[in-house]
Design a protein around this nucleic acid. Structure first.
Lengths: 148, 148
DNA sequence: GCTTGACCTCAAGTTAAGTTGAGCTTGTAA
DNA sequence: TTACAAGCTCAACTTAACTTGAGGTCAAGC
């Protein structure tokens, strides 16, 4: 064990808590990169750990891999985020998280208001009316699922 | 147009804002029920509107169709919720929503703390360490977050 | 030098929640 | 009575994020 500069997939998997297959997958999606040994095996620099950590955090925030990839890509030279970059990314992602939280809170308040009210009787419930409004928006109105 | 007691799929779709195909799907999953005309077309009682409204609300809370089905099923006689039942369901679901909100808040606070900190150096970040614990749950796509 | 565990590639499977399409039947308004 | 919108069934497709498996290679310890 001389220089511990290079990591195998297995080592990255162990240290990051992400399956080998997931790492392959991220690489195929362009989220991480590796170079190969003469025997065609992947070797990673240590910065891959940071990258993977960022990916997982962003995923928890609810960001899709595609968006994460775009965010990383949009960094100058597509580099692994420095501390400065990370501030930008995490701030943006925190804002998204804030929005999501706010949305869920609104829904919860709706639910709370509904408990014990006459909602189920007919037509009065704010939650249900919200539904109605959606259907009233034109012929063949369809409720579109908002992308995450 | 005598008794307006029975609804066709199309009518239910229009009034609930849910696509016909989705109604078929819910029926296949046992979430709603219909009876058939002599010509094999579906007819629904009006209570289906209430059921569908409940299903959509629960989905928005982040409950899966399977869980929604189980909840409805667990009602005595598998009936469409009365106001009393609805109180139970909505209370339970609100609690789940509360938990989800709390979880996201924790994540946000973690992100906030991380902004500008030395997280990216190595091993110190609370978010990263949390990740380590969080690995390995099961095959297939993992739904980490609330949809929408 | 051989065995064994870690790797490699590529294709196909998985889950959720529906949608889309083909081919055929019903119901209703003119 | 006929046209045509609305319904029916069933299979296959969709997206995201991976996992699983088959069939074959690499590397390291004994």
């Amino acid at each position: 064990m001389a220089a511990v500069t290079e990591l195998t997939v297995g080592q990255v998997a162990t240290r990051s808590g992400v399956a080998v297959s997931a790492l392959h997958f991220y690489e195929a999606r362009g989220l991480i990169r590796s170079h190969r040994t003469s025997g065609n095996q992947r070797r990673y620099g240590r910065d891959v750990l940071r990258r993977v950590a960022i990916i997982r955090i962003a995923q928890e925030v609810g960001i899709s891999l595609a968006e994460i990839g775009a965010a990383l890509e949009s960094l100058p030279e597509g580099r692994t985020p420095t501390r400065e970059d990370w501030n930008l990314l995490s701030t943006a992602w925190r804002d998204q998280l804030d929005q999501k939280i706010a949305q869920l809170k609104k829904l919860r308040d709706g639910l709370t208001d509904c408990i014990g009210c006459g909602c189920m009787s007919i037509d009065k419930c704010p939650l249900r009316n919200k539904e109605d409004r959606l259907s009233a928006q034109g012929p063949g109105a369809r409720r579109l699922l908002v992308a995450r």
